[in-house]
């Protein structure tokens, strides 16, 4: 289950980087951008998710139970920020020219879906299901 979570986490990360590259490529992180995603929101989401992933890799290697909970707790604000950005992205699709308005729908939905699966798998692992 821990390895499954690692795989879904990595797939989620790839989707995130695809969106990040498109967003930065259209200047979403520059001051005065017409986008609705603030750089602090985007990068906090990225940083916490990346730290969580590192904690999860250490958990998989070291098998220290507390680390699974640390990873789960880190993922909660990540998920909250993700939902907030998803809501803003839905709004921005009507604003042509926003850097995030051209994110491909399958990437956005896939990212959210794999993120949700990851969160559930991490929680189940932390609780000890399947041991």
């Amino acid at each position: 289950m821990a390895i499954a979570a690692l795989i879904t986490w990595l797939i989620t990360a790839v989707g995130g980087f695809v969106m990040l590259a498109g967003w930065i490529g259209r200047g979403g992180h520059r001051p005065g951008s017409s986008g609705r995603l603030s750089p602090t929101m985007v990068f906090t989401h990225l940083l916490l998710a990346a730290v969580g992933l590192i904690v999860w890799i250490i958990y998989v290697a070291a098998d220290t139970d507390a680390l699974a909970w640390v990873a789960f707790i880190l993922l909660l604000p990540v998920a909250l920020l993700g939902f907030t950005m998803f809501a803003r992205w839905l709004g921005s699709r009507r604003t042509s020219g926003a850097p995030e308005s051209r994110f491909p729908m399958p990437v956005v939905l896939g990212h959210g879906l794999f993120a949700a699966v990851t969160l559930v798998l991490v929680l189940l692992t932390a609780v000890g299901v399947g041991e």
């Binding site: 992180h29 520059r30 001051p31 603030s38 750089p39 602090t40 985007v42 990068f43 906090t44 940083l47």
Partner: peptide
């Protein structure tokens, strides 16, 4: 903003 100046500004306060 000149190209050089954009590299002087943090993209977010998370970068300091």
């Amino acid at each position: 903003m000149r190209l050089m100046d954009s590299a002087k500004q943090p993209v977010t306060t998370l970068a300091g």
